[in-house]
Design a protein around this nucleic acid. Structure first.
Length: 220
RNA sequence: CGUUGCCGUAGA
DNA sequence: TCTACGGCAACG
């Protein structure tokens, strides 16, 4: 039975927590079931809907894998590689972790040049594969939507866990730079510990700015 | 600097 | 549907 694969990411832009990538595969005969249970772009779904669909997906998918690229790993990798390159490496890693090799794979492209991203992934792939990178792939291909739901759920759970563990510093917020709660949280942490938390992305200008402000303050 | 893409977040 | 905000990345 031919198998198709979809890959998507979650949490690329935020300055806190892991970037999550997920791959989902399905027998082509079951493809229609994805639409039947309401699978679509994860951004159009509420957290509750996403959790619910994740449960249903486990029964329909051939298999799924995900990888959490923790902030500390990102901080280290980004010194020498771009985020797009890192995502290409992890996409290839996910595909190679599959037990059943897909006939074809679709992936959401963070690169404006879609073919560029596909080639990048193939550089790291140890077997030939029909691989297509498209913009808005999570809207165009239900199997990519499925991957986006998995990635998003995994990341939301990770953020929720961090928020609970570091409740003492206040509301962690969404983890994105435009979120006033996230900024206040980081400022509070840096003021108390004189450094960024391990789960903060140091290569983001947002976190650098917070660090700089604290050092400036210490000079006076 | 501009364009584009991805990640999002909030509001009507 | 539409608006606003802000991270990183590729190309010109």
């Amino acid at each position: 039975m031919p198998v198709i694969a979809g890959i998507d990411e979650a949490g690329r832009g935020c300055c806190i927590g892991p970037l999550v990538m997920a791959v989902a595969t399905i027998d082509i005969d079951n493809l229609q079931k994805l639409s039947e249970i309401g699978v679509k772009d994860s951004k159009e779904l509420s957290p509750k809907k996403r959790e619910n669909l994740f449960s249903k997906l486990k029964k329909i998918l051939k298999e799924y894998k995900f990888v959490k690229i923790e902030a500390a790993e990102l901080n280290s990798l980004m010194l020498r590689k771009s985020l797009n390159e890192i995502e290409a490496i992890k996409a290839a890693y996910l595909l190679q972790k599959l037990e059943y090799r897909p006939l074809v794979a679709y992936i959401d492209s963070p690169d404006p040049l879609q073919s560029n991203f596909a080639k990048r992934i193939k550089n790291y792939l140890e077997f030939p594969l029909e691989l297509y990178a498209y913009h808005k792939a999570d809207q165009l291909f239900p199997i990519v939507s499925a991957a986006s739901i998995i990635a998003k759920v995994v990341r939301d759970r990770a953020i929720e866990k961090l928020a609970k563990a570091y409740r003492q510093y206040g509301n962690l917020g969404s983890g994105y730079a435009h979120d006033e709660f996230t900024i206040a949280f980081l400022k509070r942490y840096v003021k108390k510990n004189k450094k960024l938390p391990e789960f903060a992305r140091t290569e983001w200008i947002t976190t650098q700015r917070i660090l700089d402000n604290e050092f400036q303050r210490k000079l006076f």
